[in-house]
């Protein structure tokens, strides 16, 4: 009698474990995702201030620019994904419509990060001309696949002639 009761209890525990696992993931995702986002935004703001003096512009040339000495292509990219908790929230949002804030914050972080990486790739530049930002979905996350997007920023980094 004894071992049977024990195995029944074990199965019950296992069941509980399998039921609880998604919830545990949810809680884990909520806590870590939130703190990671805050930390990332802090780092982005700090670095944006650091690089503020080197402008990245979408125009190809500005009248009145000093004479340009050298030019090179610089690229910055990042692949971002959304956390488990936000994905669930966005599932609800799909029913009612409206802005999907959880997704826009992820893409916004990615985009600013990509631009910062592009600037960091050429720290000696004086200006970034013709800055382009592109977003592409690498995988849409259906079934077992991971839903993530790549954000790419590229521009022509120029240096002005020093003697002017």
């Amino acid at each position: 009698m004894g071992p049977e009761i024990e195995s029944a209890a074990l199965i019950e525990w296992l069941n509980l474990f399998f039921v609880a696992t998604p919830f545990l993931f949810l809680i884990l995702a909520f806590i870590t995702g939130k703190s990671a986002e805050k930390r990332h935004y802090r780092s982005i703001k700090l670095r944006e201030e650091t690089w503020h003096h080197i402008p990245a512009i979408t125009g190809k040339q500005l009248p009145g620019l000093p004479e340009i000495n050298s030019a090179e292509l610089v690229v910055g990219s990042v692949v971002v994904s959304i956390d488990y908790f936000k994905r669930l929230l966005s599932g609800f949002r799909m029913i009612f419509g409206g802005e999907m804030k959880s997704y826009s914050s992820v893409i916004d972080r990615g985009r600013r990060e990509a631009v910062l990486r592009m600037k960091e790739a050429s720290p000696k530049a004086d200006m970034f001309l013709n800055c382009r930002i592109e977003t592409s979905t690498i995988s849409n996350g259906k079934g077992k696949a991971i839903g993530c997007a790549e954000i790419l920023a590229y521009a022509t980094a120029v240096r002005f002639r020093a003697d002017v």
């Binding site: 993931f25 884990l28 995702a29 870590t32 995702g33 990671a36 986002e37 990332h40 990219s77 990042v78 692949v79 971002v80 994904s81 959304i82 956390d83 488990y84 936000k86 992820v106 990615g110 990060e113 690498i138 991971i146 839903g147 993530c148 790549e150």
Partner: peptide, 11 residues
Amino acid sequence: NIVGGELKGYT
């Protein structure tokens, strides 16, 4: 992917 954020391997 559970916690979200950057996927460094993919980058």
